[in-house]
Computed example of a mutant assay.
Amino acid sequence: MLCAMPSESPDFRASDADREKIATLLRQAQREGRLTLDEFDERVAGAYRARTYGELTPLVDDLPDETGGTSATGPPRSPDSRTGRAALGIMSYAERIGPWRVPPRFTTFAFWGGGKIDLRDAFLDAAEVEIHCYAVMGGIEVVVSPGTRVEDRCTAIMGGVERDVRGAASHGESKVVITGLAFWGGVYIHSQEPDGKH
Rank of each mutant, 00 (worst) to 15 (best):
A182D: 11
R120T: 04
I157D: 04
R166Y: 07
R105T: 09
S174Q: 13
F183P: 05
A29I: 03
E42P: 09
A168F: 04
L35W: 04
K197V: 09
P104Y: 07
L25E: 08
Y53M: 14
M158H: 10
V161W: 01
E193N: 14
G46W: 11
T148G: 06
V143M: 02
D38A: 12
R85Y: 12
D61Y: 15
R166I: 11
H190M: 11
A17D: 03
D121Q: 14
T179C: 04
P99H: 14
E8L: 08
A47R: 04
Q192R: 12
E162Q: 05
T179P: 10
I157V: 15
E141L: 04
E20M: 06
A126T: 08
S170Y: 06
E130Y: 08
G180Q: 10
I97K: 15
V165M: 09
V161I: 15
S170F: 00
D118H: 14
A122D: 12
T70P: 08
Y48W: 13
H190K: 14
R13Y: 12
A94G: 10
R166A: 03
R105G: 10
A4G: 07
G167H: 06
R101L: 15
G180M: 02
A86M: 06
E39K: 00
R85T: 13
E39Y: 00
V176L: 12
A4H: 14
S191F: 01
R19C: 04
E193Q: 01
A47I: 11
L124Y: 00
